[in-house]
Design a protein around this nucleic acid. Sequence first.
DNA 1: GTGAAAGCGCTAACAC
DNA 2: GTGTTAGCGCTTTCAC
Lengths: 338, 338
Amino acid sequence: MKVTISDVAKLAGVSTATVSHTINNTRYVSSETKEKVYRAISELGYTPDASARSFRTGKKKTVGFIVPDIANKFFATMIESVETCLAAHGYHLIIANTKEDMDREENNIRLLSAGLVDGLLIASTMDDFQRFDSLIPAGFPVVLVDRTFDVKKYSSICVSNFRPIYRSVCRLAGKGAKRIGIIGGLPRLSTTRERISAYQQAVADCGLPEDESLIRYGNSMEDSAHTCLNELLQQKCDAIIVCQGLMGGETIIHLHKRGIRLGRDIDLVSFVDYDSGIYQLYENQMDSIIQPVEELGLAAGEQILRRIEDPEARVFEKVLTSTYKPYNVAPAWGNPDR
Amino acid sequence: MKVTISDVAKLAGVSTATVSHTINNTRYVSSETKEKVYRAISELGYTPDASARSFRTGKKKTVGFIVPDIANKFFATMIESVETCLAAHGYHLIIANTKEDMDREENNIRLLSAGLVDGLLIASTMDDFQRFDSLIPAGFPVVLVDRTFDVKKYSSICVSNFRPIYRSVCRLAGKGAKRIGIIGGLPRLSTTRERISAYQQAVADCGLPEDESLIRYGNSMEDSAHTCLNELLQQKCDAIIVCQGLMGGETIIHLHKRGIRLGRDIDLVSFVDYDSGIYQLYENQMDSIIQPVEELGLAAGEQILRRIEDPEARVFEKVLTSTYKPYNVAPAWGNPDR
DNA sequence: GTGAAAGCGCTAACAC
DNA sequence: GTGTTAGCGCTTTCAC
């Protein structure tokens, strides 16, 4: 049978209040009494019941993280750093995976915000802010991660999308590229929109032709980059920018299989998944855009904790910057595809 | 102010019992009454409080998954399939990351089993069964995943470790390898122990020299494979077996950087992370051992749900088999490192 | 320095 | 077909 706080109180010969205050350090208890309480606790093997406690206090010590794709290294790494941050503050992490499906996201927000977690971290796959907003109970702590909305009602932690893409185009143009293709993620996402508009602006600024057929969209999952790549190659691109790590890896593989050499036959710039093996092989043949995933996760964790403590805190927006890693130094160990 | 079940009851002009039974479909309610209840619910915007509910019923509808490394593709993919399975049954998933640290694991087991979750999935990093066992409250639903203990007290879902390694050695020996090195994971893990003993047995059976210095152990994280590889190369290995996907990827990269060609200068067999880019590049130059990660996650999810429903169910052990993918067919598009 | 007791929101006997 | 009510295990106010 389950041992409760009153069993402990009885055995220790004190009141339940005293037991509670002892284990929570929440008011003065004489050391002799403490002693008795702890003795009773270990004798009975008592563990306070977390769900009774959170029911009573209203605090769950848990935050939810709604992610579009757990198995994607970018999010997996972020989950890891969020978890580290939360664990350090005695919080737990509940994961929900939407697979970039808006209905699944809606469902998850509903479920999690109904008393399961104290706050929600969301890398939303929605495009409709109204719909998203209507799902969040008034005053419920929410922090948007990686992806945001035009309406700045919720705090967010994102990564600069404009700068690295603008720079990519300029660098490629500077090297003489004439037809730069780009593979974006889902068109509805803020990240994709920012990146594509950076591309468009840079293309215009560099005096390159503005050609809609050079812009392709994948879904950041499955095998979608493959089709995009084929279409861009048909358009006779001499350079390609890939807006997402998984698709960048795919692109490399397919270029390789077709015998198209990076940095010689075609120039490539890609967002790169932190410490994913494939990029280490090609770091000297392509430009990499490395997002500060860990920092992102950490900041997200800190922000949601702050908001849980003070739900009235004013909206906070943080934009981190990526590292742009051009390839120009020839490595000591030679060129993998020579 | 929070709206509760009695607000709804009051507005609908019924009892709280009726409201409860209506939303839970737990006894007959006339359709007119139902109507009134639902109207009141939507008028007030009522949502049942999950923590009150789980406090009352004792069911949290949540399972915990204690993982050694979230960012590792193997576990990330498994988390994804576990989550899919659980979500389909209305359950949530709490993640805890141990980073292969036994104290963190202990802490997490304590925290999660104290009323936070209905059951626990554990890919344990512990070697001491006594210690592990002492942390699990009597009768608490637990399923071991990927890694197990000698004492078969808990149900487990694992992957056959012996067979693919034994076969690797035989194949390598058959191709004429004389000095086969092996890079294992943490020596204390059941997976590592099974793989190493398969190696040792096969080496003996094939009549190859049994040399302790051909066995190296990494930690399956960071950069540990690098050191192991260097040591094996110093031992003049003509073939290497790597027991874990992350380390396999690292091995490929370092061999590549040193200009050592797979399948020509050295033979490689490795456990491979499902759909990780780097292996697609080398699938024609090395043997791959592919573990059924998704199946593993699914089975784990099903098992823990079953155990939660019936904690008295007898111990269940499932061993899945990996796919062994030899390289022998020359690909249409040629050899990447030719 | 400690105790008594109310009550968090819900479910489920039990009663009619 | 529906209502009354006890009580899950804990925290916390009020009292001494």
